[in-house]
Design a protein around this nucleic acid. Sequence first.
DNA 1: AGATAAAGGTTTACATGTAAAGTAAATGCA
DNA 2: TGCATTTACTTTACATGTAAACCTTTATCT
Lengths: 160, 160
Amino acid sequence: MTPPGLKDELKKRNPFDSKEQEAILNILRTSDLFHNRLGRLLREYGLTGSQYNVLRILRGEGKPLPSLEIAGRLIQVVPAITGLIDRLEKQELVSRVRCDKDRRVVYVEITDKALGILAQIDQPLGDMHKQLIGHLTQQELQQLIALLEKSREAVTCDPS
Amino acid sequence: MTPPGLKDELKKRNPFDSKEQEAILNILRTSDLFHNRLGRLLREYGLTGSQYNVLRILRGEGKPLPSLEIAGRLIQVVPAITGLIDRLEKQELVSRVRCDKDRRVVYVEITDKALGILAQIDQPLGDMHKQLIGHLTQQELQQLIALLEKSREAVTCDPS
DNA sequence: AGATAAAGGTTTACATGTAAAGTAAATGCA
DNA sequence: TGCATTTACTTTACATGTAAACCTTTATCT
């Protein structure tokens, strides 16, 4: 059951094989951590992270958007958006509107109820942002942002 | 249904309220993007990202670990680990071993089959790491790593 | 010893992410 | 016109995350 050497050969590894790997694992881990914290805050307002993201996109846009447009901005695979919108609609946070000109398209519109909830969240969410990384200087934040934007360059427009 | 002004009042917003928010959204987005890509690669080997992480931890440790120890390193909430281990066990990639001294503890041990799969993945995964952020210089990578480590400082040991 | 509390996991219920396949409407083209 | 494609979603099946409650086994306190 245990070929000698295989396990011993593999078990001693450097913590990271490369700086690239170390950087990527750092991104994933930091994201998980923050995602976790933000999720807890949002839950106090009855929202999940994904739901909040959808609502924030709709508020930012200021007008209804097609389902797939929302899915695209969320990086999500298409099918997930349906259930997400379903649940938001059930909570009366968005409404679906069929487009008359192209009846395949479903526009999603944010409701005033949702806008009210978002307005409540803005302050505490901003506070949490400061709490999470407020100890970085503005220069460090700018540097971090620039490095992450550069990190995404090889991917953003290349879904293959 | 639409109190005048509310929507107009809220819809015009700056893309980001603060550098902190912008940085955090950059972290989350970059992570989603990379998580997505890495997941596709791992799926070719029959593994999900979480499953791979469990196996990598076990290989790195070189010996069986208690379930909760694994969960802790994954940032995950406790209950998720059970099903994760269940599925890995069903695929014969790990085995559960009750600890005799403390019968509450379940040790998880990686199998040689899993070690073989991991060995197959090492090379292509390393290639993907390079592909994703190989265009950053070693200095930029080091900077990014340092900034992310600093970003986690306010959280890592403070689960409250 | 006996009652309580704490620790390590598991179960249950629900919201997501992901892939694959299906549906309906709109387009392109012979 | 009529059929094949494309587009925009939906449905289905399965693997995760998360919270809350529960079961065992240990550790603690009298």
